[in-house]
Design a protein around this nucleic acid. Structure first.
Lengths: 207, 207
DNA sequence: GTTTATATTGTTCTTCAGGACAATATCTTT
DNA sequence: AAAGATATTGTCCTGAAGAACAATATAAAC
């Protein structure tokens, strides 16, 4: 199976050539339409907001080639875009800058007739399919339940994006105390910093 | 990562040893509870109607071991059983009699932090999930539209909570360049730091 | 052909976040 | 009475983030 990279920018990334010694890059599909007899693995390099291009390319490939495999390489992986690509017939969707080892892995799985997805997307699919997504607001509530009263007050302010100094002034305590409550909150919630805390406490994904 | 096969019948199948030269078989979890310090890949061999055993075993493993990986080997693969196992925390589900090549593939994907599913199950998941995963809010789309191509790529990674160093490695540019794109993004979006950026780009409130 | 937007990288500096050691006071539970 | 959870504050240190000055290359637009 030969590897064709379709990349509008027409530049071969290092991780691609690292994964496929025989990698060939084409700026567009039309450039490769000449030889159609071999079995190809197409790697479509998709920029942000190029969903239309993805759909059109997949449909064209499926129409014009014999038993093609298609992987979408996304600069900014997006779950809805991944689902779109896969539902159109792609058998893989991953980050364009994935290290060579990962790309080799993708190639192997696909050449064995498999489908390759990233871990996050897969787990999201599983969650959705199982009907276990549940209330994220419940999830947030459960997280907050792990904190003490004062820790909650500090955590929710931090999750709004306030600095330690601002929180200290707001709650009329020293900055050191804010840090103490935050460190404790990080540990209880299993996050590493305030950004992760903010993402956790601001997750509204299931209304 | 060491491979432990938990098989109530206590017999090592040929395809297992073919995939893992270091394969070790235990009849039950309790037999292996002695040494907990290494990182293990657990292969749970599930007979028909052993869903309860699967759930209990996964929960026990996740509780008692450090960063464990769990694959369920099913004698009679079943989609609902697969979803159950995966939602409990397993990272793989495949046929117990899969050929060694496939098991090696599973091992590789999992050791890289991935999740492995069979093709049919995966496509089933995609089918039911398409249309269920929401799109970005208009607000987020409008924000992203204010950024250049490269700025978007950097910004979305930062919004996930990645550090500049991680983003630099991911996009194969220097940390300085990441900072440049981020600073520019901050200005264009009118936010003061990456936390505000994350809150803006992760806002799913107006779906 | 000059300007403008984009992408890239360099150095230095300041500020902030968070961990590593802390200690003390109050209150509840056993 | 002793133990444990909670709330508070101190100092020192490391590393990351972001601004402040930069510069260079390229491609599109005028």
């Amino acid at each position: 199976m030969r590897n064709l990279f379709i990349c509008p920018r027409n530049n071969l990334l290092g991780n691609w050539s690292g994964a496929c010694s025989d990698a060939v890059v084409y700026p567009s599909l039309s450039a490769v339409l000449s030889s159609k007899k071999d079995e190809y693995l197409f790697w479509l390099h998709a920029d942000i907001d190029s969903q239309q291009w993805i759909v059109a390319s997949i449909s064209q490939i499926l129409r014009d080639f014999y038993n093609p495999k298609i992987v979408v390489l996304a600069n900014s992986p997006d779950q809805s875009e991944a689902l779109l690509a896969l539902s159109q017939g792609a058998v893989g969707y991953c980050h364009a800058y994935s290290p060579p080892e990962v790309l080799v892995e993708v190639r192997t799985v696909i050449s064995h007739g498999g489908v390759w997805l990233g871990r996050e997307l897969l787990q999201r699919l599983i969650a959705v399919s199982t009907g276990l997504v549940g209330n994220k607001s419940r999830q947030v509530a459960e997280s907050l339940a792990l904190l003490t009263q004062r820790e909650k007050e500090v955590a929710v302010e931090a999750a709004k994006g306030r600095s330690n100094k601002e929180i200290a002034k707001l709650l009329d305590i020293t900055e050191r105390t804010v840090k103490a409550h935050l460190s404790s909150s990080f540990e209880r919630l299993g996050v590493k910093d305030r950004l992760q805390l903010a993402l956790l406490l601001n997750d509204k994904s299931s209304r």
